[in-house]
Design a protein around this nucleic acid. Structure first.
Length: 796
DNA sequence: CATGGTCGTGAC
DNA sequence: GTCACGAC
């Protein structure tokens, strides 16, 4: 393949956090807003600014208060705070929803961050070129599109279309493909907007670096393409530091050692020269990128490779005692646990490793950071308790931590901790039917299927020929199963099915019953297949009814995941439905309630899958047929389809149970969000009380300090010995200074609530029934009054 | 005291 | 396995 001439797209959401806030609170639309984090301190730190506010001079790097000065009417929605940390769950979920839309257009999608993704659409472009005559492209197919190096997009279109004429000396073929790419990207962006309500910008070029570069040149809600022959025009004035990978120290060193500042100047150096001044690899990379060449492939990657959370403790907030260290590790561990549980359900995987990272302030004032890793064993119960326990062990073992002195009370750490983080990774897949993966072309036309294990993408086109009859019979079977009726003719047309699904979707109350929701799910599935077919020469472009296209960024296409407040289902337990569905899906009843922990659950399902694979293989052999394909290869057909929700290949006879499974997942997610909100409020309430209490305590401290001057706050901490009145905590058995006792109790309260949150959101909760909880002990955690000697060594 | 919390990657 | 770096 011609790596230099791929069609690569970067999709970047415009001021994403702001858009999420605007969607959640439509009142904010059209007003200047900025999303802040931790607002108590000078209005909070701004992490996103919408374009109304930008026009008034508000930028990142500003505090909320400064923004108010620049723009008094600005609204400052805040990132929610949970367990004392910023909680970006809602933005993560929103980002995932967008990525799922993008994923329909190509399997070659690489999520680069919460709000950015690279797409390699080389194949879709080539497919489209089979039916689309470039000369018929008009600018109404390219809304909000710019071509770098051209004053307007029509000049560019005219250039491509009049290529026979004199004044052009660029590679017509590749530039033509960029133009078609831009048409497709228009459709992609329209789909994102229609289905999520979010606007984005895009860059279209022959590689990732350039796509990223031009994406930012016209914003918001615009797309920019970069023809090959315009790279030098761009580079002439482009600062080196604007290029990805050159924004930091490396870029500085390039500018300094070469005494240049613009990208264009890089071309003056030979590859050898660059390799001498930097190293071989970087030299070659610089040489290439100076000529607009970047060979880095777009990797098919949807899920993150690691899941982590961390927090800084700046200035006075640095952790100096064991108790606060424990508390924060617990909070971090709990967050990991929560996210891991959802990840396991969604992605069928568990991590094999955890890493704790931290930084401490040295006596000389310098910060040193380090990290320690731990590989889970088969017996480990992957819960927050384990994470925090292991993290603490590794921290104290690492010798950075702390130092010895006498026991009892809340002892000081040797060095203040400025940063704490826990992350888990090295995931182990529990993927089903690896062996039965089939090239899916259940629906006529090109379709792509990703082989997870090899990361290769297989694309096949097939001819519509006489043998489609069999496939249509199969289709009818599937649809019938889904609609649970028989009014579908055997020789159905996909268009008709689409209409059918759509009228049902629009004509009836979607909240009535679960059956309706399944239909909606399937309607969505149909649309998915239609979008895929837009790349194919045998099918028409995707139909989106005009009245369905929102005029405001609000999404009015029914979204199963968000729209419902189905009381029927929240009455019965959603988790029960999930269990049922999972059990069905795995063709063997697994009672999740009786499974002790996540790992056991997944191990069990893995075993089942393997056993299942064997039997399914045989069945499939019987069902398999073969047809001629364009390139005369023989390809196996099985009665499978690729689920648009999870991308997994699912056998047709499992289709409805598979859909049930997703449906239940969505309901569970809804439930999770609701419960979460409920408990989050409780935790917040507690935290507020705790803060007030802390404030009062501090004031008392300060008064004390003021009275006997010379007594520092730091001193206060060392005084936890016999001279301070203490109370023994019934929860943890520790002696706590009387002054801090109320706060300490609140801490336990918050822990309990936090536990409740996790249990209710992810463990099976069946009221009036016996539910085995994940954690063995709900009773007070036994902590040794006197820590073991090895740990003791690190305290002073 | 002050972009913070997440991610990924490559070098050693 | 650790760490610094880069990007959002």
């Amino acid at each position: 393949m011609d790596q230099e001439n791929r069609i690569v797209v970067l999709i970047d959401m415009d001021c994403f956090y702001c858009q999420v806030e605007e969607k959640l609170n439509p009142e904010l639309k059209g007003k200047p807003i900025a999303v802040v984090q931790y607002n108590p301190w000078k209005g909070g730190g701004i992490i996103a600014v919408n374009y109304v506010a930008r026009a008034m001079g508000v930028t990142r790097h500003m505090r909320g208060d400064e923004a108010k000065e620049k723009c008094p009417e600005i609204q400052l929605p805040s990132v929610p705070c949970l367990r004392g940390k910023a909680d970006i769950t809602k933005y993560r979920d929103a980002g995932k929803a967008v990525a799922k839309v993008l994923q329909r257009f190509t399997p070659l999608l690489e999520r680069a961050s919460i709000d950015e993704a690279y797409l390699d659409i080389t194949t879709p472009v080539q497919q489209r070129l089979k039916t689309l005559n470039v000369n018929t492209i008009t600018i109404d197919m390219l809304p909000n599109t710019f071509a770098l190096g051209y004053d307007s997009i029509d000049e560019f279109v005219a250039d491509v279309q009049n290529v026979g004429s004199d004044n052009i000396d660029f590679e017509y073929e590749h530039t033509k493909q960029l133009l078609v790419g831009a048409v497709i990207v228009s459709e992609i962006r329209a789909a994102v907007y229609n289905e999520t309500g979010y606007q984005c910008s895009a860059g279209i070029a022959h590689n990732k670096i350039l796509a990223k570069l031009v994406c930012g040149m016209n914003k918001p809600n615009k797309q920019t393409l970069l023809p090959k022959h315009c790279v030098n025009i761009l580079y002439q004035s482009l600062s080196i530091k604007k290029v990805k990978h050159l924004g930091g120290k490396f870029g500085d060193s390039v500018c300094e050692t070469l005494k240049i500042s613009k990208m264009g100047e890089l071309q003056k150096f030979t590859e050898k020269e660059l390799q001498t001044k930097f190293d071989e690899k970087n030299g070659t990379w610089l040489y290439n990128i100076a000529r607009g060449i970047d060979l880095e492939p777009v990797q098919a990657k949807f899920n993150p490779k690691s899941i982590g959370c961390c927090k800084q403790f700046r200035g006075k907030t640095a952790l100096v005692d064991l108790e606060s260290l424990r508390k924060w590790l617990k909070d971090l561990g709990d967050e990991i646990e929560e996210r891991l549980e959802n990840d396991a359900l969604e992605n069928n995987r568990t991590p094999r490793q955890m890493v704790v990272s931290f930084s401490t302030q040295q006596p000389n004032g310098r910060d040193v950071s380090s990290s320690r890793s731990y590989n889970f064993t088969a017996e480990d119960d992957l819960c927050g308790e384990l994470f925090s326990k292991k993290a603490l062990e590794m921290l104290l073992d690492s010798a950075e931590g702390v130092k010895p002195k006498e026991g009892e009370g809340n002892r000081l750490l040797k060095a203040p901790i400025k940063f704490l983080g826990i992350s888990v990774g090295k995931f182990e897949e529990h993927s089903e039917n690896k062996k039965t993966r089939k090239i899916n072309y259940y629906f006529s036309g090109a379709s792509c299927s990703k082989d997870v294990s090899s990361d290769k993408v297989i694309t096949k086109s097939i001819i519509n020929n006489d043998k489609t009859a069999d496939k249509n019979e199969g289709k009818a079977h599937v649809f019938r199963k889904f609609f649970q009726n028989n009014d579908i003719p055997d020789n159905l047309q996909t268009d008709e099915l689409y209409e059918k699904a759509e009228t049902r979707q629009n004509g009836e109350n979607m909240l009535e019953s679960s059956l309706d929701k399944q239909e909606s799910f399937f309607a969505k599935f149909l649309k998915t297949e239609f979008n895929k077919n837009t790349f194919d020469n045998h099918s028409k472009p995707v139909k989106i009814k005009e009245e369905n296209r929102p005029t405001t960024p609000d999404c009015n296409i029914v979204n199963i995941g968000e729209a419902s407040n189905d009381t029927e289902y929240s009455g019965s337990t959603i988790d029960m439905e999930i269990n049922k569905s999972i059990s069905l899906f795995e063709d063997d009843p697994v009672d999740i309630d009786r499974v002790g922990n996540m790992r056991q659950l997944l191990n069990k399902s893995k075993l089942l899958e393997e056993a299942f694979d064997e039997t399914e293989q045989e069945e499939l052999q019987v069902e398999c047929k073969s047809v001629d394909v364009q390139d005369n290869e023989q390809v196996q057909i099985s009665e499978t389809f690729k689920c648009p929700e999870c991308g997994k290949t699912v056998s047709v006879n499992m289709l409805d149970t598979h859909a049930d499974y997703h449906f239940a997942l969505k309901l569970r997610e809804e439930e999770r969000v609701m419960k979460r909100k409920e408990v989050v409020d409780k935790i917040k309430d507690k935290e507020m009380n705790r803060n007030q209490e802390t404030k009062a305590t501090k004031t008392r401290q300060e008064e004390a300090v003021a009275k006997n001057d010379g007594v520092s706050i730091a001193n206060y901490f060392t005084k936890i010995d016999g001279s301070v009145p203490t109370e023994t905590c019934s929860e943890c058995g520790k002696r706590v200074p009387l002054e801090k006792f109320a706060e300490h109790l609140d801490f336990h309260e918050a822990q309990k609530l936090s536990r409740e949150l996790n249990n209710r959101s992810s463990n099976s909760v069946i009221q009036g029934n016996s539910v085995k909880r994940k954690r063995k002990s709900t009773s007070p955690v036994k902590k040794p009054k006197v820590p073991c000697k090895s740990i003791d060594l690190f305290f002073r």
